[in-house]
């Protein structure tokens, strides 16, 4: 473990908590893409299958349980409890256009052709693009509530911090995983225009306006 990865995990945890609290407190999931949340739940489910078979540490197990529980709780809030506030008309990104390439790529580019490894690879590639429906929805509605933009900033920062973690591990532990690194860079790059707007606007108290 290193400070970059710890900060990344904390940022990730913060993002998930911010989103849960936003929906729970405002009793509304307006502006939130249910499709992205479905993709995140799929990501954690396929990545953490080793939750019960491969004990790494208490921290690792704890975080996996929290991420799984929080992502399914968020889906329950969006599609069940507060489904009347779910903005279906703006959450229209065709996720099959993400699932197909991710599936093909995970079958072609992986470390080992075993079910567990393929599912792990699939989850890595899926996570890289899982935010697209949410970013698409924000661009369609043309704006995002400030709490939603804080969620996005924390979520985007987490994988950016993981990139620093991979640089650290490469030099300090000679460890690297090209699949995770490639997907992590793509994932972080997708947030770039949002990061720019967040830093130039939201931090000055203005609303986040994405060019529609």
């Amino acid at each position: 473990m290193n400070i970059f990865r710890l900060l990344g995990d904390v940022s990730h945890l913060l993002a998930i908590i911010i989103l849960l609290l936003k929906i729970w407190k405002t009793r509304s999931c307006a502006g939130i893409s249910g499709k992205s949340q479905l993709l995140f739940a799929l990501t954690y489910t396929t990545r953490y299958l080793d939750l019960v078979t491969n004990f790494v540490s208490v921290y690792n197990t704890f975080m996996k349980v929290v991420f799984l529980a929080a992502s399914y709780a968020t889906i329950w809030l969006i599609y069940m409890k507060f489904r009347a506030t779910y903005d279906q008309n703006h959450d229209t990104f065709r996720i099959e256009f993400l699932l197909l390439p991710v599936t093909i790529l995970s079958l072609v580019a992986n470390h080992e052709f075993t079910l567990i490894e393929i599912l792990w690879t699939w989850s890595i590639y899926l996570e890289a693009v899982a935010i697209l429906p949410q970013l698409f929805m924000v661009s369609k509605t043309g704006e995002a509530e400030s709490i939603t933009s804080h969620y996005l900033f924390a979520l985007g920062s987490y994988r950016g911090l993981y990139i620093l973690n991979w640089i650290y591990r490469y030099y300090m532990e000679s460890y690297y995983d090209l699949i995770a690194i490639f997907a992590g860079i793509l994932q972080t790059v997708l947030y770039c225009d949002f990061f720019y707007l967040y830093i130039t606007k939201v931090l000055r108290g203005q609303r986040l306006q994405l060019p529609a």
Binding site: D50, N54, V56, M63, W120, A180
Partner: peptide, 10 residues
């Protein structure tokens, strides 16, 4: 690529 890495990252 990493050898039999224990997948210790989240």
């Amino acid at each position: 690529p990493a050898e039999e890495d224990p997948k210790d990252e989240l």
